[in-house]
Structure formats: structure tokens, C-alpha cells
Design a protein around this nucleic acid. Sequence first.
DNA 1: TTTTTAACCGCAAACGTTTGCGGAAACATT
DNA 2: AATGTTTCCGCAAACGTTTGCGGTTAAAAA
Lengths: 332, 332
Amino acid sequence: MKQNPTLKKIAERLSVSISTVSRALKDHPDISAETKKKINELAELLEYDPNPYAVNLRTHSSKEFAVVVPSLSNFFYHSFISAIEEHARSFGYSVIIYRSSNDPVIEQEILKSCRHKRVSGIFIAITSETKEMEPFLKLDVHGIPVIFFDKVPQYESCNKICVGDELAATIAAEEIIKKGITNVIGIFGNKNMSITKARLSKFNSVLASNHTDMDLKIAYANSSEESEIQTMSLLSEFEGRKFAVFCMSDEVLAGSMKAIQRKGLVIPDDLGVIAISDGMIPKLFYPEITYAETSGYNLGKLAFDRMMRCISGSSFAQTIIDESKLVVGGSI
Amino acid sequence: MKQNPTLKKIAERLSVSISTVSRALKDHPDISAETKKKINELAELLEYDPNPYAVNLRTHSSKEFAVVVPSLSNFFYHSFISAIEEHARSFGYSVIIYRSSNDPVIEQEILKSCRHKRVSGIFIAITSETKEMEPFLKLDVHGIPVIFFDKVPQYESCNKICVGDELAATIAAEEIIKKGITNVIGIFGNKNMSITKARLSKFNSVLASNHTDMDLKIAYANSSEESEIQTMSLLSEFEGRKFAVFCMSDEVLAGSMKAIQRKGLVIPDDLGVIAISDGMIPKLFYPEITYAETSGYNLGKLAFDRMMRCISGSSFAQTIIDESKLVVGGSI
DNA sequence: TTTTTAACCGCAAACGTTTGCGGAAACATT
DNA sequence: AATGTTTCCGCAAACGTTTGCGGTTAAAAA
């Protein structure tokens, strides 16, 4: 059970004081070049690294960010985290990832732990059940910036980075219109989520405003399985006619695709498919599914920039929208 | 910028000593019931929680596990992490997740950080480039148990928890034989990975030993894209005959499925498909793909049990294999 | 030669805990 | 009444850093 080297050990071996070692290691001007060299060499040799607990206890700063997401099995979050990590690393921060399992209770615990660990900042996609804003405000009181992303609260005065739901829905709707399709099945997610509402209302209005004879059938699904069932029953409605299926997320897309395959329908001959997605699921099929892209990586970069601004002090609450673009597959 | 309450604050408010507060909070017999009550109430009110940095500095123990994986966009790792988290939580541990991006350098940094943070233990799936065992041995010297899972090193004397590659390959091969298929395309992963070698050799030998007229065509792919290309070219070989495609992992399965769809082939009429998988990708298609299941959740549970044994002292190196079972879809 | 000034370095306190030890009451035992 | 036992609590050191301040030497200025 070896001990890690400490300032004290280095100091003793070199017959200098602990403070000298500490200062030498951070290139303090008070220490002579000669002494610095000696100390740095020994530190190198011993593979000295400051004990983060002691540093934190002393300085109250941890140089690490927390990312909290409901789930990890999600390409979107994955690429978001990639962006955060990449940028954080270059600023000397490390990032730790928490998973709330979409459970508000666990989310609370995580937040508390973040507070006590005095993380430098938190990126969080809240659970669909999160109602209380108070824990987040408390973090603010303690000087820990919070950046909400993707799944954000209604609450106004906080930092939010979101995908452009309206634009994404518009892009998808316009593509359908462009193809001259007037029979549309729309599969959406949980009815209560703000993102569902935003995407639906925009999708609806764009379609309606362009075609008076638009026939749009809507279903909500909380899971892939539900989506499959809903799609299954809606598919029969347009039997024989030219129509399209729109899926507002990867989760529902997965279910819908299964229903389509089950029916033995051929894309794009029998029907068109279009989705809002990060691009993982659409690329599993042939033809690849056309989708309005929501880029986790972009969002991560935006969120990180925002975070650095907060840390540097210039922090007024702000909502940033990342606009998506159409990625053409062959599905419509 | 509020401060968290400390032992000192509580002590002052109650005119007792810090040590009394500390002991009361952990139900030490030296403290009278009355005093304990007073202290606990105030602590509750103030939402006191011990400063983890101070605790760790003092006790040298962090009550947190680290999980290190090459990638997060992976259903298998995701369910592994779920299992670890679930069990850890019930033991009062928290878990932090690190992502090595399959980069040995980043992996090193993570390990170092774990050492300095004195995590209670590490679960790690190493990168495909990891050669050095020395950093892991060093962790051991520092009293930090390391449990390797899934992607494990060759090195003998360490704790490894793996999926049963041989059994999984056997299950898949036997299913093919059972269906009376003698023309087989096998798509495998990176040629250098031990898991590829294990699965291939077993798959090969089981097929060969049962049918002398077995026609097996093999391809290696490092990515989904490569897998699609490889499958594409191999598919033409068995034109018109009854045959099956075997995919050794989700990654290659994704590519192969795309090739199959591209060719317009119908499963299971034109060909059979079978894979080794954790179950995510197979369920995206209809008919669902039949697969030999490698359960991340099971593996996580096994790994956690092993970890707890290590921590309690009874730690001799051991390799544990989780045996998989056949999950029948309709693809063969 | 004496004084000023700069260049180097160490002392000690503080961050918030945990814990061995010792001490003062209060009680029970001869 | 004197001694032995509990019961309850506080002192102080330690964990490994950072940092304000003060002190010592040597070089520069007078």
C-alpha cells in the first residue's frame, strides 16, 4: 500500500520547506531558477501530483465539470458529452458524467453531491418529471453555474441551450410538402414534454398552412414499443395512397420502422419516412432515413462556451438555440 | 456565494465541541442520547453534509467507484453501468463514469486521476491499443482494486469478467446447423482483438465439426461501414442458394443489415441472419434478429460482486465468464 | 563603511474532517 | 468516606495543500 508522494516528502529530500516546493512547482517568481530546477526534477522522478482533495479543501475549486443526463444509451447525449470533454480537456478541466435514470430523486442526489464536491459547473438535461427549480437556484447561490441543455425547464431566467425544435419541425414538414405528399402520419413523444409540444405545433402549422387538403394523423408514444403499436394501426389508414411518416425522435423512429418492416412496406416506394434525429438510427437502414439533424456535438460546443462565460463572471441568463439542417437519405 | 454548513458552525451554535458533533452525527456511543438529538436536529435543519474533500483527506477513502469505457454509445456498456450503479448505490457508493475514447493516452490520464482521487475501485474495459500493464499494477500497489471487464488484457493474474465468447459463438453456430444451413458468411470485428479470435475459432470449429461440406466465408471489419462493404461483396457469392450471415457484434451487424437491405434481400426467406449482441440493434428490425445474448447487466452484477470481495480483502485474481443464451427472433 | 533594496525562502494558519487520549463529573462499590 | 467505574465530552494532532507575511542574506547605492 504505497503512498503517493507529497510536498513534504519532496521538501525533506531536498532540505527545503514545503512552501518552497509548492511555489517552485507552480513557477512562482519568488523561487530561484536553480531551486526550481532541482524541485521539478525530483517531482518528475517521483511522479508527484497534487492531492486533489487537499487542493480543493484549500482552494474551494475542483476544476471539474459535471454532466448530468437521464440516460447514456443515446447517441445525442453521447456526442454532446464528447464535445464537452474535448473542450474541457483543453482548458485543464476534467468532466464527470452522471446518469439520473430519468428519476428526479436520483437527480436531486446527484445535484447535492455536485454541490458538496464543489464542481466548477454543471451541464444538465433534466428528467421529464423535474418540477422543482429550487435545487438549481441553490447551486447558483453557491456559485456553481448551471447550463441546461436539450431537456430544459420552463423557468425563464436560467441558461438554456436547446435544439431548434421549431426549425427542425419546419424543415421536416417542408420536405414533405416539397414531395407533394398530403397524407401524413406524425408520431410524437411524451405528450407532456415541452419539446413534443414545440415540435408538434410547428409541424402542424407548417403543413396546414401549405395545403388545405392535408390529412394529418397524430399519435403519441412514450417508448419504441408504443410507437410501433401506434404506427401499426395508423399505417392501415392510408392503404394504397401515397403518404409519409414523420417521427419526432430516434426513439419513436425505431418503433415506427419496425412497424413499417412488419407490414412489408417498401421505402420510399410505398411511403416516405422522415424524422428529427441525431443521425444514429437513420443510418442503420437502407435507404437511409432523411432527417432534420439535431447535433449533440454542436450543442455541446455552444454549452461549453456559455459555461466559460459564466465562470469568467459575465453571466446573464440566456437561451441559445442551435439550428438544425436537413440530412438527405433516400427515404422520402 | 453561500457556504455549506460545517461541523464547526453546528458546534458553535450548540456550544459543544466539534468532535462531539462529529461523533453524534455518526451515532458514536460516547455521546448521550440527548446531545445526539439536539445535534441531529440542527444538522437536519441546516442540511449539513460532510465535505467530501475533508473526509477523504482525513480518511483516505472516497466511497466512489470509477467505470472506464472506450465509448458510451454502446448499449452493452450502458447496461453494464446500470448494474454497477444500482448495486453501488445500495452500498452507499457513488460511481463516476470515464470515457477513454479508445485512446490509451487518455486512458492513462484517467487512471492517474483515479489514483489521486483514491477511488475505492475501478471497473475498466481497456482500449484496443492498451499494452502497458504497469499502470494497473501501480493501482494495485496503492490498494485500489481493478476489475477488468469485456475488453480485458492478456495478462494472467488480474480480475477479469468476460462474456463467454466461446459459448456465444457455439450457440450461434449450432443454431445455423440446426437450421440445416451449410453456406455461411461470417463477419467479424478487428482481427487483432482477442474477442475476435476467440469467437472466430470457436465458430469455425463448431461449424466444421458438424458438416464436412460446410462453406464458410469470413470477413473482418473495423467499423459498420467496412462491415457493409464486406457483406455486400460476400452476399453475391451465395446468390440463389440458402445461406446465413453471422455477425459477431452489434457494430458489424449494423453494417451487414444495411447491405442486406440494399440488396433487397428478405429475411428469413432469402437468407438467415444471426448475431452475437446485447439486444439493442436486433430489436430494431422486423423480423427481430436472432442472437446469442451478451448481457451487460449480468456482467455488471458479476463485476460488482467481485469488487466487493476485493474490497473486503479476500482478493485472489480470478477470471469469471458470463455465459450467454440464445434469444430467438425470426431472422433464421 | 553604512544603508537601502531586491532576491529568496520559511513560518504558520487555514480548509473541514476524524480519532486517540485524557479529564471531569456522576454514579456505584467496598 | 474513600475508592473504583461509568458516562460523557473536549483537546489537539493529522490529512496535503496554499498563501500572507516576515526574515535573512547578498548585492547595489550612498
